[in-house]
Design a protein around this nucleic acid. Sequence first.
DNA 1: TTTGCTGCAAACAATTTGCAAACCG
DNA 2: CGGTTTGCAAATTGTTTGCAGCAAA
Lengths: 129, 129
Amino acid sequence: MTCQRQIILEELGKVTSHPTADEVYQMVRRRLPRISLGTVYRNLEVLSQHGLIQKLELGGTLRRFDGNVDSHYHIRCIHCGRVDDLPVVQPLDEIRGRVQSQSDYRILSCCLVFEGVCPDCSRHGGSSN
Amino acid sequence: MTCQRQIILEELGKVTSHPTADEVYQMVRRRLPRISLGTVYRNLEVLSQHGLIQKLELGGTLRRFDGNVDSHYHIRCIHCGRVDDLPVVQPLDEIRGRVQSQSDYRILSCCLVFEGVCPDCSRHGGSSN
DNA sequence: TTTGCTGCAAACAATTTGCAAACCG
DNA sequence: CGGTTTGCAAATTGTTTGCAGCAAA
């Protein structure tokens, strides 16, 4: 656990915004101005493989990262790209168990992803990215 | 509906393999040797916006396309990247309704994505891509 | 001294775009 | 004709990699 890795983890823990790799880079750079984007990518990868953060691949172009490793749902705004957490209305483990019994894959994980329009974009007619 | 667009749609309807854009390009090229990859991308986009096909963003690097537009689950093998359909153990509309009542997003769609190891990769110890 | 990590820059892969010609209505 | 779509090639975007120097064990 290098200093860079530690700080990346800390910064991710501070926010609930599901930042992209580049956003993490910007956040971390305030504390480590000389860190490189490559290092950020490498450490995000290592951290997620150790289960300390979650790598989110929710569609849209960008990969995002989440300091909250508990299993939960996400929703992405198709207008602005913002990603939020959703209340869990049913444990995914339950669905996963039922699917597992019907599939000959060995299931390792599952995620439930919603797409929609966030409150801000609904209000403003949803301009921009 | 141009000739190219028609053929792309037809070819997608023939398979259940969730091909990538490039795989669609290879399929279509057998019938239209002079079609370009750019045209394939453009038409896949148009077709999915008109709800004639489904664009899948299941994680992993590649975007995939599905001629089956009914709402269903998918599973992706983390070893070989193969994508299969799964038996639906609970309608997504039901979960979606429950989430909608708790969220201030306007929900447009949702998808349930599983990750695991496919039977082939399980057997062979799961080499390769 | 070996091992792993960094910053940097170049490489990559998937997708998108600009453009002139071809096509369609 | 006017708008759309095409093939082609070049550009863009997000991410990964090679490498030489550093730091820690």
